[in-house]
Design a protein around this nucleic acid. Structure first.
Lengths: 210, 210
DNA sequence: TTTTTTCTGTTGCATAAGCTACATATTATG
DNA sequence: CATAATATGTAGCTTATGCAACAGAAAAAA
């Protein structure tokens, strides 16, 4: 992480009487937002988990990003160029702040501490986003399903500081995230178990290699 | 593009007596930079073409990004997390500016117009970068070689405003960019020709569909 | 120019991965 | 609690893709 700025902490400790932000709550399964051209939304996930999902013309579903607490999303980060549908779906109860980027980047006339602090930290936050995207690209350029799985596990393992962890995504969603067929992924998981590379109890993964 | 800020124009028209920047020239085939941890370089390609290339432990070569005039690169945009090698290779004669991000983001004490203008436009430039990365992810999440090729062609076609265009990468490099085997890609190109989807004369592509 | 190197184009073979289908387990919901 | 809905786990079959190998074309270097 470039940034040590914890959005959620700031939000609850700093005043915000800003008229440029909307705060909404969503329950599991609801659509938080649909990406549309021209609008330039910047959203902050204060609480919960959500997925940025793309549906293409062939009916394939791809989880473009898995968003957790403090994640930023919205059209600022993803210009709609193709005619694919881009949705953000709540995976649990979510609290979200909505800004329009052009309004956000101007200093707040209401002396809103949160708004101004956010703008100040925006470059770091955006650079963090870039790092995530590059990690995602590294994952997707893995040539085989096995390599994708191993790299994904390794990332989570590093993040959790443990060789044992619960998957943050369902296996179905993981397949959509790695952009592979689910049943083929399940088969590869079984082979990884047979090869004593990983162990797997339900959605709990144990890495067995060094 | 978010930004209408043309870096190269600004560089040649504005004063820059900055001690925080290095300008270097490279000839084809030379290594412009190697990504290393901790340093936080931000580089600008003023002239030429270059590739950001990753070599993984299996010996696979991946073109992470194809950089052309006015492109930004460097560790700011790609934190070195895995132990893969990341290099930027000049594909033609290149002129490059090198900054260290932490120095760049402070206002210039030398009253350097270019430096200060650059900082001012940095958010837009970084957002452009994000858009590119998302496009790359969209490309890599295409499930088949055929879909990757068609999407890539469609992107170039849109950029060039023409259904006919010369590939900006060699076919060998294109395979590394799409993260597929070269011979398999060649085979798929032949099938696309047979299906009258595209025509191909050497490295010139003609899209035949609507 | 000649020589060397790199790139393009093609093939046969082996295998990874997609697709379909279904049974069971787990999790939501009335 | 019962029932519906969704997720996990597995198998057979088919196809796409990777790999190895090589010939000819094009580009770079001597």
């Amino acid at each position: 992480m470039n940034s040590d700025f914890n959005i959620e902490n700031f939000y609850y400790n700093f005043s915000c009487n800003c008229n440029k932000v909307q705060k909404k709550t969503f329950s599991k399964g609801q659509i938080i937002t649909t990406y549309i051209q021209k609008r330039n939304q910047l959203c902050i996930l204060l609480r919960g988990n959500a997925d940025l999902v793309r549906y293409d013309l062939n009916g394939n579903r791809t989880i473009v990003e898995h968003l957790s607490k403090n994640a930023l999303f919205g059209e600022v980060f993803y210009k709609v160029t193709t005619n694919n549908e881009l949705l953000v779906e709540a995976k649990s109860k979510c609290t979200v702040l909505f800004y329009i980027y052009n309004q956000l980047k101007e200093p707040c006339t209401h002396g809103c501490e949160f708004h101004n602090t956010l703008v100040e930290h925006l470059p770091e936050l955006i650079l963090d986003k870039i790092t995530e995207l590059n990690t995602r690209i590294e994952l997707l350029t893995q040539r085989t399903t096995r390599d994708k799985l191993l790299m994904y596990f390794s990332l989570i393992s590093t993040r959790k500081l443990s060789k044992t962890f619960e998957l943050p995504l369902s296996l179905t969603d993981l397949a959509d995230y790695l952009s592979v067929d689910r049943s083929a992924m399940m088969r590869e998981l079984k082979l990884l178990k047979e090869d004593k590379m990983v162990d797997k109890i339900g959605n709990r993964i144990i890495l067995l290699y060094e």
